[in-house]
Design a protein around this nucleic acid. Structure first.
Lengths: 135, 135
DNA sequence: CCGTATCCTTGATGATACTG
DNA sequence: CAGTATCATCAAGGATACGG
């Protein structure tokens, strides 16, 4: 249990702030960020169009948005070459690379437990199916 | 658009499937799941209303949705006690608990690097501010 | 090539009211 | 208490076209 004193101040905090990993989840696991970081980590520095082609269904607008956000957060470095035609290259930063062990842990959990999630879903759907249908 | 030649097979893969951790991200880091799992992990088994009060801004509808999803994925166990008034308790499952080291890694990265993200943002905003205002 | 600007659709969420 | 149902809102994302 929490301390008996000043417990209201603890309850009043923002819902997601009550969870200490909420901020980093926002930064690292918002939509498209992991595929982008993965692509940059796997295939190294590359141009806008290469990323666009790799993340097949992403639109240039959204790709720009996410890259700007990642650049602002210091996870990605953007380099502009003032040539004709213009050339822009993106690469993962040291800070971005520091996420590698985290992603590795995630991948490990994935290979170890994703199957259990699938089983759980089958179980649940079977139970729900028989319950709603009233066999 | 679906040409029968071989080159389509590589391009047609799902955008997020190109990233091997995309599935687990969907499961574990979709909205509200980490605060819920955290609350269940920290404070143990608890009732619907307790969770609702802890996650201050969540609505019962959304809480129900997220709990159902977590239950279906096998991360949370729901126990229904047919009493008057009804009592329902939620607790984290073993599979859910297996995420603990992952969350710990995340928390470590957080304490080590969240400050750098803030710095990067200040830098970026300063650069952008001076660029748009131009002098 | 590397984006931006615009319009539009949709899925997620909030508000409110109501049952077993 | 523990939800469900319904309606309203709203911002993220997609489609398309265009510009430096």
């Amino acid at each position: 249990m929490s301390s008996t004193t000043a417990w209201t101040s603890r309850v009043d905090v923002d819902p997601e702030q009550a969870c200490p990993i909420a901020p980093v989840v926002d930064i690292v696991f918002s939509r498209w960020t992991t595929p982008i970081l993965w692509a940059l980590h796997e295939y190294g520095r590359q141009r806008f169009v290469e990323l666009e082609r790799r993340l097949v269904t992403i639109t240039p607008k959204v790709l720009t948005q996410r890259l700007r956000q990642l650049e602002r957060d210091g996870l990605v470095v953007r380099t502009y070459h003032p040539e004709v035609p213009p050339r822009v290259e993106y690469e993962i930063s040291d800070l971005g690379r520091s996420l590698a062990p985290l992603f590795a842990t995630l991948a490990e959990w994935s290979t170890a437990n994703l199957g259990k999630v699938d089983e759980a879903r089958l179980d649940y759907d079977a139970r729900e199916g028989s319950r709603t249908r009233r066999r």
